[in-house]
Amino acid sequence: MTHFGMTPKQHELLSYIESHIAEKGYSPSFEDMKNALGVASKSGVHRLVKSLEERGLIVRIANASRSIAINHDAPDNLGVGI
């Protein structure tokens, strides 16, 4: 485990989401995240996204596409973007 208890994949995904939003102005799709992380299925990405959401590191709007936002107020969010 690294970065305040996150797994390496969770940290990789959080960093990817942050950089994608900064570069393009909107969050990546599950397909984008699957390809960027080399995860075999979208369900694997869903588990990672859900874990970040449960930790309060990201916020999602239910039933909306590309609706992930970084929660910059989360206490665990230290060190993201480095």
Score class of each variant (00 low, 15 high):
Met6Ala: 08
Thr7Gln: 13
Lys9His: 10
Gln10Ala: 07
His11Asn: 12
Glu12Asn: 14
Glu12Ala: 15
Leu13Trp: 11
Ser15Ala: 09
Tyr16Glu: 00
Ile17His: 04
Ile17Val: 15
Ser19Val: 05
Ala22Val: 05
Lys24Met: 08
Gly25Pro: 05
Gly25Glu: 07
Tyr26His: 12
Tyr26Val: 06
Ser27Glu: 08
Pro28Lys: 02
Pro28Cys: 06
Ser29Val: 05
Phe30Ala: 12
Glu31Met: 08
Asp32Val: 00
Lys34Leu: 01
Asn35Lys: 10
Asn35Gln: 11
Val39Gly: 01
Val39Glu: 13
Val39Phe: 11
Ala40Phe: 03
Ala40Val: 08
Ser41Ile: 02
Ser41Tyr: 10
Lys42Val: 10
Ser43Arg: 14
Val45His: 01
Val45Asn: 02
His46Glu: 13
His46Cys: 04
Arg47Trp: 11
Arg47Pro: 00
Leu48His: 13
Leu48Met: 10
Lys50Arg: 15
Ser51Lys: 15
Ser51Thr: 14
Leu52Thr: 07
Leu52Asp: 09
Glu53Lys: 15
Glu53Trp: 14
Glu53Thr: 14
Glu54Tyr: 11
Glu54Pro: 00
Arg55Gln: 15
Leu57Asp: 01
Leu57Met: 12
Ile58Ser: 10
Ile58Glu: 10
Ile61Trp: 03
Ile61Val: 10
Asn63Phe: 09
Arg66Ala: 09
Ala69Glu: 15
Ile70Pro: 00
Asn71Cys: 10
His72Asn: 08
His72Gln: 06
Asp73Met: 07
